[in-house]
């Protein structure tokens, strides 16, 4: 493996300052993504940040990289296409819980079972923020929102369990209030060969008055401080269910598996974007002959 030459965080300063609400958790996530890219030494020309729609999905506009700010829920397939087109690129998907676990959850499951070699950072604020505060797939049971004035009576989805059981090979949880650790978790995801899902508590200071910075600060602890071994599948599932007074942060599950890219035969000849276009004359003739 080539030695990584780390790049300073300023390398990734975007052309526009973020327009998130003051205090939004996404500021910390943006900084952590920049830190992680720098730590992995990814040149901005080779970094592609793909998002869907939502407050957090505006992130590609605020970072110096190639960005794809796609449709609501469709960041994963767009990222898949972009990465299969050019496997030399580092693809980081960023978005929110509504985008990834709601409208886009079908794609997410399939990308994880394929073990696609991309990193997905979900800024999970347990609410729809851009649309001014409706319940999301991770909104806690009982929580009152604009769309659940009497309290949400649906159970929230558990992203970590979903990821582990769907086939993601790097599953972690971060907190935008723990930025240093978050940067390391994202860097770990980028360096990891396979699908990395990093679910990040990124509080919405405007529309979620329950899952706030203090809420998490009181409850979170770091798995690495407790000598946790993330390679055991069943222990990981158990850990992924831990919620309440103590909520774990860190790498919950990690395994080395073949990626989709490893098995795609056409990629063995190098990234698609670098391959020659069109057919050699003899192949062209063979294709005609087989139809006669």
């Amino acid at each position: 493996m080539a030695t990584v030459i780390e790049l300073p965080i300023e390398t990734y300063k975007g052309p526009v300052d973020p327009d998130w609400c003051p205090g939004c958790g996404d500021f910390g996530v943006l900084r952590s993504v920049q830190q992680a890219a720098g730590k992995c030494g990814v040149h901005p020309k080779d970094l592609v940040v793909v998002s869907g729609i939502g407050c957090s999905s505006n992130l590609p506009g605020f970072i110096h990289a190639y960005g794809i700010h796609s449709l609501h829920g469709r960041s994963v397939p767009v990222a898949t296409g972009a990465h299969l087109a050019n496997t030399d690129l580092k693809v980081v998907i960023t978005g929110g819980d509504g985008d990834g676990y709601g409208i886009g959850v079908g794609h997410l499951i399939h990308a994880m079972r394929r073990n696609l070699d991309v990193t997905y950072v979900v800024m999970d604020n347990q609410i729809y923020g851009l649309t001014t505060g409706q319940a999301s797939p991770t909104t806690a049971k009982g929580m009152k929102t604009k769309s659940t004035p009497a309290g949400n009576f649906e159970s929230p989805l558990n992203p970590l369990v979903l990821a582990i059981t769907s086939g993601a090979t790097y599953v972690a949880r971060g907190f935008s209030g723990e930025q240093k650790q978050l940067g390391d978790l994202i860097a770990g995801g980028i360096a990891h060969k396979g699908f990395a899902l990093i679910d990040v508590f990124s509080p919405c200071v405007t529309y979620n008055k329950v899952n706030t910075y203090p809420y998490f600060k009181e409850r979170v602890y770091k798995l690495e401080d407790e000598g946790y071994d993330p390679t055991d599948f069943y222990k990981a599932i158990e850990k992924a269910y831990e919620w309440g007074d103590r909520i774990p942060l860190g790498v919950v599950y990690k395994t080395e598996q073949e990626t989709y890219e490893d098995n795609e035969p056409v990629l063995k000849k190098g990234p698609l974007v670098k391959q020659k276009l069109g057919l050699p004359k003899n192949v062209h003739q063979e294709l005609i002959d087989e139809m006669i």
Partner: peptide
């Protein structure tokens, strides 16, 4: 969406 992603990625 994949086809469009691949298009952005630079392939036909």
């Amino acid at each position: 969406n994949m086809a469009i992603g691949a298009g952005i990625g630079g392939v036909r």
